[in-house]
Amino acid sequence: MSPVTFYLLSSVGIFVVCLYGLIVHAHLIRKILALNMMGSAVFLLLTGVARRGELTDPVPHAMVLTGIVVAVSATAFALAVARRLYEECGRAYLPEEDPEDLSEEREG
């Protein structure tokens, strides 16, 4: 196994872990963290793919560079929305994932 394969498998691992976390956790900060790391996993996959041939492919590198900047602006927007939601409703959860409903389900 070449080192590139390690990183390709690692990106799959990160993606899957974060997808699970995204669904399971109710807190919005947690969800945004998971989404951001899923993006990193995709970037890692692209970087690994770029490294497979004998020449390093600059096209995926440029895509990832663009992607990093877009990811930070999307994250900033998501965090701003979360904070506004907190200010309006006093909670950092989506309405259908209210912590008290979830805790009732857990108990009952």
């Binding site: 990183y7 970037f43 970087t47 490294r51 990093i68």
Partner: peptide, 19 residues
């Protein structure tokens, strides 16, 4: 760091600063 290992110093720089 892993991007630096994968010969991608451009995005390693950007990730360390932005990501």
């Amino acid at each position: 760091l892993s991007w630096a290992r994968l010969d991608a110093p451009d995005i390693a720089l950007a990730e360390a600063a932005i990501g």
